[in-house]
Computed example of a mutant assay.
Amino acid sequence: MGKESSIKPDYKILAYLTANEERKVSGAPLFMTLKTEEELKETTVDIAKALKADVVKLKNSDYMIVRV
């Protein structure tokens, strides 16, 4: 943990969306739990467009909306 630990990331997480009702995320970004996978996908795209941001789908099928 040398020099790289002091480098600030060049992205910002704006939102975290999931269909898993048991998952809890705390912190600054918006966190949403949606009922179905289809609702999750549609809402993610809508929010990303509104915020002019990018979407990252995680291996656990959750989504993060980030701005680079």
Rank of each mutant, 00 (worst) to 15 (best):
V25P: 08
G27Q: 04
L34K: 04
L58K: 15
K8F: 14
S61V: 04
I7E: 08
T43I: 04
K35H: 04
V45N: 02
E22L: 11
E37Q: 15
K35D: 15
I7T: 13
T18P: 02
K35W: 02
L30S: 06
S6F: 05
M64H: 09
L17A: 06
R23S: 13
L14N: 00
I13S: 00
M64G: 06
Y11A: 00
F31Q: 01
M64F: 08
A19F: 06
E38R: 15
Y63I: 12
S61I: 01
P9R: 10
K49N: 15
V66K: 04
K57V: 14
S6H: 06
R67D: 15
A53L: 03
T18Y: 02
P9I: 07
R23Y: 11
I65M: 13
N60H: 00
N60E: 14
V56I: 15
A48E: 11
E42C: 00
K35T: 12
M1N: 14
I7F: 01
L34V: 15
E22C: 03
S26H: 07
R23V: 10
L51H: 07
G27R: 03
L58M: 04
E4Q: 08
S26V: 11
S5E: 07
V25F: 14
A53M: 12
A50E: 15
V66A: 01
L34R: 04
S61C: 01
V56Y: 09
K52N: 15
L17H: 01
Y63D: 05
K12D: 15
N60M: 03
A48K: 12
L34I: 03
S5F: 15
L14E: 01
V25I: 11
E21G: 13
S5A: 14
K3R: 05
T36L: 03
E21T: 13
D10V: 04
K41L: 12
K12M: 10
D62G: 01
I47E: 03
M64A: 13
K41M: 08
S5K: 14
M32S: 10
E39P: 01
E37M: 14
P9Q: 08
Y63Q: 06
P9M: 09
K41I: 14
A53K: 06
V45W: 10
L34S: 02
K35I: 02
V56L: 12
R23K: 15
Y11L: 12
L58C: 02
K52G: 05
T43A: 08
L17T: 02
K24I: 12
D54W: 04
G2T: 13
